[in-house]
Amino acid sequence: MSEKIVEIVDKIDTSQVFTELSDAHSGGICVFVGTVREFTQNEKVMSLEFEAYQKMALKEMDKIASDAKEKWKLNKVIIRHAVGLKKVEAPVVVVGASSAHRDACFEACRYLIDTLKETVPIWKKELFENKTVWVSAHP
């Protein structure tokens, strides 16, 4: 019954996630989709490029999914991140959870994305017209 999906993919299909989290014991499904925003501090972003240390990233994502299942009563959990070049509006990360009642999946969903951003070895490069910047690399 208890299920985890942890993946790194080239392209995210956001239409899958409802079916993947759907569960007879769940009365709520909460999903967060991270996407490519066109402007960063008034500068126009052409695209984002994501790179992962795949083996370790999957391990860390699995830990986050397991921790979430320990903290909240969840039926299904998903963490899926994309790598490669992504254009404006493209989905780059999907996290979500299903639970009997909505509080658990809302809280878990925020935990999943916030922790992913802190610990998972994935790097994002912003490609502007005239330069590229590794996000968060410098203070």
Binding site: Y53, V93, K117, P121, W134, A137
Partner: peptide
């Protein structure tokens, strides 16, 4: 062994 610079996924 791997060097892990500041991560920025999501």
């Amino acid at each position: 062994i791997a060097i892990i610079p500041p991560v920025s996924g999501g």
